[in-house]
Nucleic acid binder design. Structure first.
Lengths: 247, 247
DNA sequence: TCGTGTGAAGACGTTCACAGCT
DNA sequence: AGCTGTGAACGTCTTCACACGA
């Protein structure tokens, strides 16, 4: 009401692009009772853990913060600070035990009890995600996929992934206690599907559509906006400096 | 040398997960002579621009910072601050002209002169990216795709996208002044392909592989790490609070 | 009066530098 | 000596709050 009349339309019509998730802004940390690990630190901990797994695979048993930091692309001090969130894990003068550190991170990140994940929208992107082995490598498994037109999708897929009709999504989620969803539907449908997910008790959405999702507090959204990413890159690439480095 | 002998192996072997790019850390802003717009602000400006385009499409000609901010999912003050990077664009007491604001952002972000982009690695993800219409919608076009096994890829694709053998990548880039690349190859190949890209004069890489790329200064890398994104979500989803909201 | 633009305050995250343990 | 853990400094981004212009 405070606005001119024409402007109410704005609020109705606009449904906008994704705010890149990790934007330090609002939900910077969680209120897990014992330890509010900042968002960015969680990210980095995941990275450290990947590095550690490689070290394990190579039979290495001890790392210093500087070695691990170099591998992860951060500064040693930051690594130590991040690790500080988990307690005292290192041995002064020696470094960290690769095995126990990895385990500690896994526990802290909740990798022990991975949530089941569903995929909604089996288009180009959705299909790629279904087939993406990176998820499996990291221990995630898409337990079910949903689409508006499951028959069409199944025909397109030569493999036989489980694809259910989207209208059963809510029931499935409730039945299987699913609390995480990957959203890969077209932008126009994104908000309405998100609403359904919320209704079904979703707690986390990985959103690939270029739309800002409105969700109630308590539901966290991670946005991956490909076009935005490209546009940002385009900006940071100076059009100057022509020609390649060396012949 | 300062480290114990075993540790040199570490530096060789580890080639680690992606540091989510926008991590405020190191390359927070560019040194574009006239205006160093901070990284996060660039992101948000892209978002505002999308919102504005929708407003244009709906024939709306004026917005206030609060309306636009709401649509973009940020606070009004932040929007005004971000817009402040571009100069004085609004009219006090009125708001912003949708058209001119959008234009101003487009110019500032360099959307006028979009860089040509190539894709390297036409696997699951690469294919999805090739077909992803979100890029086109935002005005980007993948001018060429490369793969180690272009024949295999072409067979798999029913459509006929241009896919060249990866060994011609460097020449193509130099010939066509390509400075941006999307990297969607398996993690093991990522660094070596990145090296080739750098050799060919790349200035920006959108990296989808779960690996930390080592690139010389002046080359900017944007990482999109899907597994990391999922893992983060998994952490922020409290396993507590069972059952759905309402029957 | 309404909404932009902006100094100043505040919150957050990173980095330094060193105390303390092995 | 070597390396972790951490108080304190620093820098950056966000938010407030209000002066100013329409």
């Amino acid at each position: 009401m405070p606005l001119g009349e024409g402007f109410n339309i704005v609020e109705v019509m606009i449904r906008c692009p994704a705010p890149p998730a990790w934007f330090g802004n609002f939900p910077t940390e969680i209120m897990s009772q014992n330890d509010p690990i900042p968002r960015k630190a969680v990210y980095r901990l995941s990275i450290y853990n990947r590095c550690l797994r490689r070290l394990v695979a190579n039979g290495i048993e001890t790392v210093s913060s500087s070695a691990l930091a170099k591998a992860a692309g951060v500064k040693p001090a930051q690594l130590r600070r991040d690790l500080g969130h988990l307690g005292q894990l290192g041995t002064r003068g020696l470094g960290y035990s690769v095995g126990s550190l990895s385990e500690a991170i896994s526990i802290a990140l909740g990798r022990a009890k991975l949530q089941p994940v569903i995929l909604v929208g089996v288009g180009n992107l959705g299909t790629a995600l279904l087939r993406y082995d990176g998820f499996l490598k990291e221990g995630f498994e898409l337990v079910m996929a949903f689409d508006r037109e499951p028959e069409v999708v199944k025909m397109r897929l030569s493999d036989s992934f489980p694809v259910m009709n989207q209208e059963h999504m809510g029931d499935y989620m409730r039945a299987h206690q699913v609390r995480m969803a990957i959203l890969a539907v077209p932008g126009e449908q994104a908000q309405s599907v998100a609403n359904e997910l919320v209704q079904a008790g979703v707690a986390g959405i990985l959103n690939f559509s270029p739309v800002v999702l409105q969700v109630p507090e308590g539901v966290s959204v991670n946005n991956v906006d490909l076009a935005l990413e490209l546009e940002q890159l385009n900006y940071f690439v100076k059009p100057d400096k022509n020609g390649a480095d060396n012949s």
